[in-house]
């Protein structure tokens, strides 16, 4: 039984970095589930969005977010998910996922290092995984 279930939504290159944190997260009792696959968002404690979110993808993300249980947190991993990043003037890119739903942590970096995700999650859940 994991301490924390993460619904990982890989939408672009930052996902390579967040997935590289998987083994370090597993040691902390954090389980990474694929948010665009078969995993059920209803069992997740936190959703991590890694990568550039296009307007074409926004509806899917909203749908996944709507299926999260009440009180689930959201982490924007990387510059694109946080603010649009280098695509700040692109008409096709969502300028940060907080325009779609509330976000609890913004992780800076293009991409951030893998352990930045570990730090963001231990900070956000300092009463569970952060305690270890």
């Amino acid at each position: 039984m994991p301490l924390l279930r993460v619904l990982h939504v890989p939408v672009a290159c930052c996902a390579l970095e967040s997935l590289a944190a998987a083994s370090a997260l597993a040691e902390l009792g954090v389980e990474l589930a694929d948010g665009l696959g078969e995993s059920d968002p209803a069992s997740a404690d936190v959703m991590v969005v890694s990568g550039t979110v296009t307007h074409a993808m926004a509806a899917t993300l909203r749908e996944v977010h709507a299926r999260l249980p009440d009180g689930a947190r959201v982490v924007a991993f990387g510059a694109c998910a946080s603010t649009g990043g280098p695509y700040w003037d692109s008409p096709t890119v969502v300028q940060g996922i907080q325009s779609l739903f509330p976000v609890d942590r913004f992780v800076p970096g293009c991409p951030p290092r893998p352990h930045a995700l570990v730090e963001a999650l231990t900070d956000l859940f300092d009463d569970t995984v952060g305690r270890r």
């Binding site: 609890d104 913004f106 992780v107 800076p108 730090e119």
Partner: peptide, 12 residues
């Protein structure tokens, strides 16, 4: 040291 995660984009 890397810039830490923040609770708002303004803090970034």
């Amino acid at each position: 040291q890397a810039a830490p995660a923040e609770a708002s984009t303004a803090a970034l």
